[in-house]
Each structure stands twice: as structure tokens, then as C-alpha cells.
Amino acid sequence: MIRLYDYELSGNCYKLRLLLHWLGLQYQRIAVNFHPGREHRSPAFLRDINPLGQLPVLADGDFLLRDAQACLVYLASQYDRAGHWYPDDAATRGRITTWLATADDLTRSIAAARQHYSFGMAADIARCEALARASLRLLDDALAENQASGRPWLAGTHEPSIADIACFPYAALAGEARIDLRPYPALQAWIRAMRHRDGFIAMPGILDPAL
């Protein structure tokens, strides 16, 4: 049984819940008291689960994997036999990996600012906002071009890939980092398209389209 070391309000944990759900995989959620307990920084967690003190962490049998983007690559490679989420094509995989790096920038910017406003954690807000805007601009430009060419997803694919799942949560949660998404219309259309995919599941802060 796959186990997910999970925190309900984390966009990086949510992206794994979303892929696991879309892959139809059963898994066990292990709730970690990230806030207010800071359990992810406890000696036991650092020793046994993740020395970097970050969530999520995926455990598949004895195989323990940290880093949300790495976990997306693993899950898609191991369990998506159709190759839908991580297509076996060099150019596509190259483009996907580019966007996985952008997903890390969204974590460093939007997620950091959101944690500051929600949990009072220290953050350099001006730096977060500058990196967030640069990342959102990059995403919006690429999505506008892809939407015009009829391959509307981030890696220039006809169907979403793990690149979309990686960047989606913190783009959609930008409002909680007090970042206005109105300057990014292609990005907003992409967020709507993600939310309306069959079988989409929500998280707090990202509404189910039925609501």
C-alpha cells in the first residue's frame, strides 16, 4: 500500500493526492501536524522520513521518496502504464522537466508568501512577489501560445501531464498569497480547464467547480 505523509493545506501534498486520485490508486494518508505542531521539523521526522523537513513524502513499500515533483515522476512512471501523464518522448519529457523547475519556483514564492500570511512564517514578501510574477508570466506566455496552437497544456500536449499537476496548485492558490491573477488570462483559463477535468478533486482554497 502506498503511504503519503500529508498535510491538508499543502499545495505540494495536494498535487500528489490529485495524481493518485486520477491514477485510481488506493493509498494511506498519514496526517502530519505541520501547523501548529511543526512535526515535519521534529527529530523523528528528520531522522526517519525526510532530512530536509519537507512535505510531502511518498512511501511505496520500502521505497521512500521526498520532493513533490520527484514523487509525480515516480508515480506516473510506475503506475501510469498508458504513459498519459509522463509521455515517453524525449522532447516532451524535456519540456515537462522545465516546468517541474518552475513548480519549485512557485513553492519558493507563492507557497512561501501564503505560509507567511496564513501561518505567520517569516518570508521576504517583496522577493516572493517578484519571483511569483516572473513565474506566472512565464506560465501565462507559454499557455497562451499552447492554447493558440491547439495543444493547450503546459508541455505542449493534447492532454494534461505531470507538468500541469506540478504547477497547478500554487498558481490556483495565488490569491491566498495576495497575488492578483487578472494579468494572466491564459493561466486563468488553464486553471478553469484543470478544475473541470473529469474526476477533479479540490483542496481548501481551490474550489470544486460544482460549488
Binding site: D6, Y7, E8, L9, A31, V32, N33, H35, P36, G37, E39, S118, G175, E176, M203, P204, G205, L207
Partner: peptide, 18 residues
């Protein structure tokens, strides 16, 4: 456990926040 109880409450509150 505490973490499960906190997760449930924070999910509810996180839905109200936006």
C-alpha cells in the same frame, strides 16, 4: 491522533477562508 483532528478542522477552516 492530534494530527488527524487538526487536519479535519483545518480543512473545514481552509474551505471558509477564501
Amino acid at each position: 491522533g492530534d494530527a488527524d483532528m487538526i487536519a479535519f478542522q483545518q480543512m473545514i477552516f481552509g474551505q471558509d477562508k477564501p
